[in-house]
C-alpha cells in the first residue's frame, strides 16, 4: 500500500513531478500534493461533482480517479479558467446571474459547463439542463446556474 509511485501531472500548464501512493485520488493529489485547492470535495463518492476537472479534454470527477491513472495527463482546474485578470465568460456570467452563493460547488459547475460547451457550443435548453443535472448545489436552486451557463454559451458563440 505504501509503495509510492513517481508520476507527472501538468495542471493548468504547470508541471508537477510528484510521488504518490497508488490509492491516492486525483483530487487529493491536485489539492494536497500540487497545491491547487480550487477543486473541492463534496462527497468523495462520485455524485456531487464538486471535484470536476478536465483531464486531457474529458470532464472527470477527480474523486473517482486515482492520481496514478492521470500520469502524464494535462489537467485543467478552475484556477486555469481566467486569463490573468480577465475572467472567463462563464465566470462573468456566474457573477451577473448570481449563480453562486457559498461557491463551494462552483468550481465543479464551471468545469462541467466549460467541458460541455467545448464539446457542443450550441446545446439546447434540455441538453443544458441534462448536463447540469450531473452536479449538486445546495444553495442556489440551480435556476441561476442554468441562466448563467446559457448566457455564457450564447456569448461565446457571438
Amino acid at each position: 500500500m505504501s509503495d509510492r509511485i513517481d508520476i507527472t501531472l501538468t495542471i493548468n500548464g504547470e508541471r508537477h513531478d510528484i510521488r504518490v501512493e497508488p490509492r491516492k485520488t486525483l483530487a487529493d493529489a491536485i489539492r494536497d500534493d500540487c497545491g491547487w485547492t480550487g477543486t473541492h470535495l463534496g462527497c468523495e463518492h462520485g455524485v456531487c461533482g464538486a471535484c470536476t476537472v478536465i483531464v486531457d479534454g474529458a470532464t472527470v470527477r477527480s474523486c473517482l480517479m486515482f492520481a496514478v491513472q492521470a500520469d502524464g495527463a494535462s489537467i485543467r482546474t478552475v484556477e486555469g479558467l481566467a486569463q490573468g485578470e480577465t475572467l472567463h465568460p462563464l465566470q462573468e456570467a456566474f457573477i451577473a446571474n448570481h449563480a453562486l452563493q457559498c461557491g463551494f460547488c462552483t468550481p465543479g459547475f464551471l468545469m462541467l459547463a466549460a467541458g460541455a460547451i467545448e464539446r457542443n457550443p450550441r446545446m439546447s435548453d434540455a441538453e443544458l439542463i441534462e448536463v447540469l443535472s450531473s452536479n449538486l448545489c445546495r444553495c442556489t436552486g440551480y435556476e441561476n446556474i442554468v441562466k448563467a451557463v446559457r448566457s455564457a454559451m450564447n456569448q461565446m458563440q457571438a
Binding site: R31, T37, G38, V78, E79, L81, A82, Q91, I95, G103
Partner: peptide, 21 residues
C-alpha cells in the same frame, strides 16, 4: 449590486477550511 465575495470564489482562490495547510 454584484457580490464582493464572487471573484475569489470563481477563481478558486477562496480559502475554505480544508484549503488551510
Amino acid at each position: 449590486v454584484a457580490r464582493v465575495e464572487d471573484d475569489a470564489l470563481l477563481r478558486g482562490r477562496a480559502r475554505f477550511v480544508d484549503d488551510i495547510h
